[in-house]
Computed example of a mutant assay.
Amino acid sequence: MQRYSLPAIVLHWLIALLIIATFTLGLVMTEIQGLTPTKLRYFSWHKWAGVTVLALATLRLLWRLRSKPPAYPAAMPAWQIRAAHALHGLLYVLMFAVPLSGYFYSLAAGVPVVYFGLFSLPVLIEADPVLKPVLGALHYWLNMVLAACVAVHVLAAFKHVLVDRDGIVQRMSPFPTK
């Protein structure tokens, strides 16, 4: 079976790990009461990871537009192929929408995003106490949809490994088999 290219595989797993870490950190940091040094540090890490996901997602999309993915197995039902395309499309949209909504939420809160403490991202909107809760809710719900989509993606991968045994997961595996 044909595999994805090495850059596609590396970007897939880097982004996947960063999304899981960023989501988990977001849950942890929002549960910390008050404004503590730990909470502020976690917010910075969360933002850095989100900006990194956005940058890597941009690279991944550019690579995907340039590089054709391997074909699905001929025996795979058409409805599953359509579902896979729809889920992958939604995952791409969310890889951009989630970090962008967080970025604009931070700006609406009057907190600039400073990447790794090295440079500030542009301030595209001014602090806005009316927009802040709207963007906060949007960021939260986009994250919940992303988490659900990731869960469906992982469950589908398990189905292909345990039920279908069609080798489709090996196309993106970081550990190629012969």
Results as ranks from 00 to 15, higher is better:
124 L>N: 12
118 L>F: 14
128 D>Y: 10
94 L>I: 01
88 H>N: 12
94 L>P: 00
157 A>F: 03
112 P>N: 11
148 A>N: 00
159 K>Y: 13
92 Y>V: 08
128 D>P: 07
108 A>L: 04
142 L>F: 13
151 A>G: 01
139 H>Y: 06
137 A>R: 14
120 S>K: 15
115 Y>E: 00
112 P>D: 11
110 G>W: 03
150 V>L: 11
127 A>C: 13
98 V>D: 05
94 L>V: 00
107 L>P: 00
121 L>G: 04
133 P>W: 10
94 L>F: 07
107 L>W: 08
91 L>W: 02
149 C>A: 15
127 A>R: 15
127 A>K: 15
87 L>A: 08
95 M>K: 07
99 P>L: 04
89 G>L: 03
136 G>S: 04
113 V>W: 04
152 V>S: 01
87 L>T: 04
119 F>N: 09
86 A>C: 02
114 V>A: 14
94 L>A: 06
114 V>S: 15
90 L>N: 01
152 V>L: 13
126 E>K: 15
101 S>P: 05
113 V>Y: 02
157 A>T: 07
87 L>I: 05
91 L>T: 05
111 V>L: 15
109 A>I: 03
144 M>V: 10
112 P>C: 11
97 A>I: 06
124 L>K: 09
100 L>A: 09
159 K>A: 12
95 M>F: 10
114 V>F: 12
136 G>L: 02
99 P>Q: 02
104 F>K: 01
89 G>W: 00
108 A>M: 00
102 G>K: 02
152 V>Q: 02
125 I>Y: 10
88 H>D: 02
94 L>Y: 08
141 W>Y: 15
113 V>L: 05
152 V>K: 00
114 V>Q: 13
106 S>Y: 05
134 V>M: 11
129 P>H: 13
125 I>G: 05
150 V>E: 03
140 Y>K: 14
123 V>S: 15
142 L>V: 11
94 L>G: 00
125 I>H: 08
138 L>E: 00
155 L>F: 09
103 Y>P: 05
136 G>Y: 01
160 H>M: 08
103 Y>N: 03
148 A>W: 04
116 F>D: 12
160 H>G: 01
87 L>N: 05
106 S>P: 06
157 A>K: 06
127 A>D: 13
125 I>F: 08
131 L>I: 12
94 L>S: 09
150 V>C: 04
162 L>C: 06
121 L>N: 07
151 A>Y: 03
157 A>G: 12
123 V>R: 15
146 L>S: 06
130 V>M: 11
130 V>D: 13
111 V>S: 14
119 F>I: 08
107 L>A: 06
129 P>V: 13
136 G>T: 01
122 P>N: 10
100 L>N: 04
154 V>M: 03
